[in-house]
Nucleic acid binder design. Structure first.
Lengths: 223, 223
DNA sequence: ATTGTGTATTTTGTATTCATGAAACGAGGA
DNA sequence: TCCTCGTTTCATGAATACAAAATACACAAT
């Protein structure tokens, strides 16, 4: 009859190491912790009011995600992100997101297509109102739906990983995109191809989408 | 005049957590630790003569590599590897190794091509002597050289990661391949395309290479 | 002033201890 | 016999303690 509070608590339970991990990960992703910055265990532990143990766990995990680099007996530092790093990321993204779009064209169910249509329309509405925050949300949702439609969880994880790395770069170097109109058109073309189960065109359009990002970055690199 | 021993020791120094990590990783990769098997911290710590701390670190890292799954307050278990998992892996491998071969065709230097030629010949010699171990080495080397030639370290890491996951599957389920002749021919075609800087054909041949593995697996799944 | 050396401090690496939740066991009752 | 509930044992989560390496610093010698 009454809600089982124990169960709820159990569900919500997260080891401290996990909490610290997410905290630090977010701080790095948002650019709050800058490349090269040192991560000292006691400092972080004191800040968060925990002991060194969970902090160490968190740092180890971040290292595996290559968000920090560790030098034995010296310490951990927020990983650098060079221009070359980001070009590597975009090179892979182009290939994998193109691939994902092609798979999506083959595997997306009708229900998923309907839901996707809603997202596209939502993006358009947000664009009409110039609601930037809402556009970003819809944009993320749009791509997530493509990835999910591949039904390949590993592929999804890899792509998200690459997105995170790019996201960090973006927040560090140039804080915003403004080419929403272009994004809208690109989404339209990608979705159209997927809806028509045209894998080749979906792939091409998705590749173009990433390429336009790459061009932006290249232009930025050239300064 | 004398070698600087301090430096050498420093170079060789590895934190215990790292040692344990590699030990467990290898045990899982080699199938010594089987899917579902429980990893108990004290047990492993006693076996290796260390405390729980480095063992915990190792397990956390293995979790991030999805070699183990952790259930909070319950424990860590060697991750399962289902047939579907391996099909996911192969689906991505096909795409990425094809892509890598195409990049290699565009970017491989003449020196790298010479070295690669040596590896191909070495493989052929080993095949003539039916030196299986040597063939496996050459095979690995062959593919490594393609990946390195992409000059995209992130791409290389992702592909190696997928290889490791497949390797685990292979050792658990069917202990050996015997289609060396087929591999030889496939290598020949891939290398020929790369040498001629024919990216499209390199991609196609590399994709076929992975596809032939996929067919083997599919046949095995059908039993 | 600069270099070198020894000491103090800080920080990481590892072990140990304490706390708490989860599973195993067992006794008692329906 | 089987179920329930409490106790006990065991494993993990987290904090603390201790060891050893790296760094900072001060002071002496040239």
């Amino acid at each position: 009859m009454s809600v089982n509070f124990d169960k709820l608590e159990i569900r919500n339970y997260k080891p401290l190491g996990e909490v610290v991990f997410e905290y630090l990960r977010n701080a790095i992703l948002s650019g709050e912790l800058k490349p090269g910055e040192r991560l000292m265990e006691v400092t972080i532990a004191d800040q968060l009011g925990v002991s060194r143990t969970p902090v160490r766990e968190a740092i180890r995990k971040l290292e595996k995600e290559s968000f920090v680099i560790m030098i034995p007996r010296k310490g951990a530092y927020v990983a650098d992100l060079t221009k070359n790093d980001i070009l590597e990321v975009l090179e892979i993204r182009k290939e994998l997101e193109g691939f994902a779009a092609a798979l999506a064209a083959e595997r997306m169910t009708d229900e998923e297509k309907d839901a996707m249509n809603d997202v596209v329309e939502s993006f358009n509405r947000s664009l009409a109102h110039m609601d930037k925050k809402s556009m970003i949300d819809s944009d993320n949702e749009f791509h997530s739906m493509i990835f999910k439609a591949t039904k390949n969880q590993r592929l999804i994880n890899i792509i998200y990983d690459l997105h995170d790395q790019f996201q960090r770069f973006r927040l560090i170097y140039f804080s915003e995109f403004n080419n929403f109109k272009e994004i809208q058109e690109s989404h339209g073309r990608i979705f159209d191809a997927i809806r028509k189960c045209d894998a080749d065109r979906a792939k091409e359009e998705a590749e173009n989408h990433v390429d336009s990002i790459r061009e932006l970055v290249n232009k930025w690199i050239a300064e």
